Amino acid sequence: MVKTEFSIKDLENLSSVKAHTIRIWEKRYHLLEPDRTDTNIRKYDLESLKKLLNITYLYKAGYKISKLAGMTPAQIQSLIKEDMEIHAATYGLEMFKSAMLEFDGQKFDETLKNLLEKKSYSDVYSKIFVPLLNKTGVLWHIGSIDPSHEHFISEKIKHSLILETAKLKKQIVEKDFPIFILYLPSSEIHEISLLYAHYELVSNGFPTLYLGPNIPIESLKHVQKQMPNAVFVSYFTIQPETENLKSYIDSFQEQVGSKNELWILGNRVRTFETKHKNIKLFEAIDHFKNHLKKSF
């Protein structure tokens, strides 16, 4: 069952406003009117949570809570749209979070459209989507949101990455670049970061072949036979396990060969070192982006 009832602790986790402050706002400004359990514990519905998120966004933007408490929902929405010009990142975070909680795909799409009129997709991804996904992961693990919320927002972001990359694909002019083949290793399912690496490659004009998740090394041999000068790109989030990294790279060297470069991003390689010259490790996506610009 999808979560539609929230505790004051859930509201604190979702809005970053302390429970003590929420209680003060209720008592002093009648901001929210929670129901109570038989044991007098507050419980809030989705509308109360949405109201708090909207008000929190404006409060963080500098508006006084005494003024916000007296405004209608329509007035608050109007003020949010006006303020978006100044605080685009905060606006995006709160609107995407609201879209997630409501399973509102249209709100997600409209928010992204508004942001892309002012910012590049790369900026939206790094300054809004990444913090949103990090926050969502924490909220899921502590039980303040349902797994379906996390899946919804993740799939919307993945879909936006695919759409934006497809737009850029149409603009690629043939150049004397190697083709980049993107894949995730066996049992690795965290695809969003690889999709963003794909977006960056395409936005820089590189030809690509996107294979997606769960690709065993032996499958790469078949691709390499048809594209002998390919550069392989992967993102290791949870797989391979740290203790298996060396054996994975050794298998790549044996089955694909040292003539092809393998670029690896992700948490798994942050403390890993290799002596193989064709293996390039990137601790962060910015290092990957900088390397693209310097190498070709």
Rank of each mutant, 00 (worst) to 15 (best):
residue 5 E to L: 14
residue 7 S to T: 15
residue 12 E to F: 10
residue 15 S to D: 00
residue 16 S to F: 12
residue 16 S to K: 06
residue 17 V to G: 10
residue 19 A to G: 12
residue 21 T to A: 13
residue 24 I to R: 09
residue 25 W to C: 07
residue 25 W to R: 12
residue 30 H to G: 06
residue 30 H to R: 12
residue 31 L to I: 08
residue 34 P to I: 14
residue 34 P to E: 14
residue 37 T to H: 14
residue 38 D to V: 09
residue 41 I to M: 11
residue 46 L to H: 07
residue 47 E to Y: 00
residue 49 L to G: 05
residue 52 L to N: 02
residue 60 K to S: 10
residue 62 G to K: 00
residue 63 Y to K: 13
residue 65 I to R: 08
residue 65 I to A: 02
residue 65 I to H: 07
residue 67 K to V: 15
residue 68 L to I: 04
residue 70 G to V: 10
residue 72 T to D: 06
residue 79 L to F: 03
residue 82 E to R: 08
residue 82 E to A: 02
residue 89 A to Q: 05
residue 90 T to M: 14
residue 101 L to C: 10
residue 103 F to E: 11
residue 106 Q to F: 08
residue 107 K to H: 04
residue 109 D to Y: 05
residue 112 L to H: 05
residue 113 K to C: 11
residue 115 L to G: 07
residue 116 L to A: 02
residue 116 L to N: 03
residue 118 K to G: 06
residue 120 S to Y: 02
residue 130 V to E: 10
residue 135 K to F: 13
residue 136 T to M: 06
residue 138 V to K: 06
residue 142 I to R: 15
residue 148 S to Q: 14
residue 151 H to C: 02
residue 151 H to V: 04
residue 151 H to E: 11
residue 154 S to E: 00
residue 156 K to L: 15
residue 157 I to F: 08
residue 160 S to V: 01
residue 162 I to K: 13
residue 167 K to A: 04
residue 167 K to N: 06
residue 168 L to N: 04
residue 173 V to W: 01
residue 175 K to D: 10
residue 175 K to F: 07
residue 180 F to S: 01
residue 180 F to T: 00
residue 208 T to E: 02
residue 214 N to D: 15
residue 218 E to F: 15
residue 218 E to Q: 15
residue 220 L to C: 01
residue 222 H to P: 01
residue 226 Q to H: 07
residue 226 Q to I: 12
residue 227 M to K: 09
residue 227 M to P: 00
residue 230 A to G: 12
residue 232 F to Q: 11
residue 234 S to M: 06
residue 241 E to H: 11
residue 241 E to R: 15
residue 242 T to C: 11
residue 242 T to Y: 13
residue 245 L to Y: 07
residue 248 Y to K: 00
residue 248 Y to G: 06
residue 257 G to R: 09
residue 258 S to A: 15
residue 261 E to C: 08
residue 262 L to C: 05
residue 263 W to I: 01
residue 266 G to D: 09
residue 268 R to E: 05
residue 270 R to P: 02
residue 274 T to K: 03
residue 277 K to N: 10
residue 277 K to Y: 02
residue 277 K to V: 01
residue 283 E to P: 08
residue 288 F to T: 00
residue 290 N to D: 06
residue 293 K to W: 03
